[in-house]
């Protein structure tokens, strides 16, 4: 084999790998779509929003309570985590001595590596009893919001940490030279310029929370309903799949794939919005 042929074979192998890796997401999408055809044909799209509730054994397939549960817990988690993320970013750059900032960053790094099942377990044994003491039953929207909020905090903080680093490199010296107070600089300069990155981190946080399964499944109580208070148990789309997949058959199974498809599309939209925002900035 000549050198030229060897190079050609090498490139061929590489492009096979690349195309294989490139088509997986498309393949998954079409596969989910194919699996959800029986549900769309057998149940019909109208039933997915018109049925009374989601109760598979009575052929009730309304996804709205599940979707609402997913949205509520995700929005709650982002509302919990974003302020803490901003505070953490400011803390590391402007308030903490560098040793503490380093320690804090590695702590957040560790937090990011903790599996969701452990967050769920911790929520179940530590947080849920605490919530129950405030207001029974305990497994609730609130517990889900807190656990999920802690889980997405690293995602949010890492983005903001980088953004603050950039901003302070650009402007901080001039504000110090002007004699602006620390809080004055943060309020007048850093925070307003951070708005875009906060938006991006919120989108990514939402994408991450919508897809989260285990922690939510373990702390939210999994009752299909529209909650009226934060102490009500809820069931999300993801938890519903995890709960019903083991025994789902035929149309029911297909309906679960349909909800999976909804989620994949939802997350893809959130992620791509976040990405176009990031690239527009650069």
């Amino acid at each position: 084999m000549s050198l030229w042929q060897k190079d050609k074979a090498f490139l061929f192998v590489l492009s096979v790998c690349a195309s294989l890796a490139g088509v997986i997401s498309i393949f998954i999408f079409f596969f989910l779509a194919k699996e959800s055809v029986p549900a769309m044909a057998g149940i019909g799209l109208s039933q997915f929003v018109m049925d009374e509730t989601w109760f598979a054994s009575e052929n009730q397939y309304n996804v709205l309570p599940l979707l609402w549960g997913s949205v509520l817990v995700s929005v709650g988690a982002v509302a919990f985590a974003t302020p803490l993320g901003i505070l953490s970013g400011l803390f590391c750059h402007f308030y903490a001595p560098s040793a503490i900032a380093g320690f804090y960053r590695s702590m957040v790094h560790l937090l990011a590596g903790i599996p969701s099942v452990i967050f769920g377990f911790w929520g179940l044994v530590s947080l849920v009893p605490l919530v129950a003491r405030i207001h029974p039953p305990g497994p609730s929207l609130l517990a889900g919001v807190i656990v999920l909020g802690i889980m997405i905090l690293p995602t949010i903080m890492v983005i903001l940490d980088d953004a603050i680093a950039n901003l302070s490199r650009l402007y901080l010296n001039s504000t110090v030279a002007l004699g602006v107070s620390k809080w004055g600089a943060l309020k007048g300069l850093i925070l307003p310029n951070l708005r875009k990155q906060v938006g991006v981190s919120i989108l990514l946080g939402l994408a991450r929370s919508i897809g989260e399964t285990m922690a939510i499944l373990m702390v939210c109580g999994n009752v299909v309903r529209f909650p009226t208070s934060v102490f009500n148990p809820i069931r999300t789309l993801t938890a519903n799949i995890a709960l019903e997949m083991p025994f789902a058959m035929n149309v029911h199974r297909s309906a679960l794939f349909f909800t999976g498809l909804i989620m994949m599309v939802l997350v893809a939209i959130l992620m791509s919005t976040a990405q176009t925002r990031t690239s527009r900035q650069a």
């Binding site: 890796a21 998954i28 989910l32 919508i210 897809g211 399964t213 995890a242 997949m245 999976g260 959130l270």
Partner: peptide, 19 residues
């Protein structure tokens, strides 16, 4: 395509893997 894959929820991978 890889970014979409990275964002796909793990439970969706579970569905796909099962099917």
């Amino acid at each position: 395509s890889l970014n979409v894959l990275a964002g796909t929820p793990s439970i969706v991978f579970g569905l796909f893997g099962n099917a």
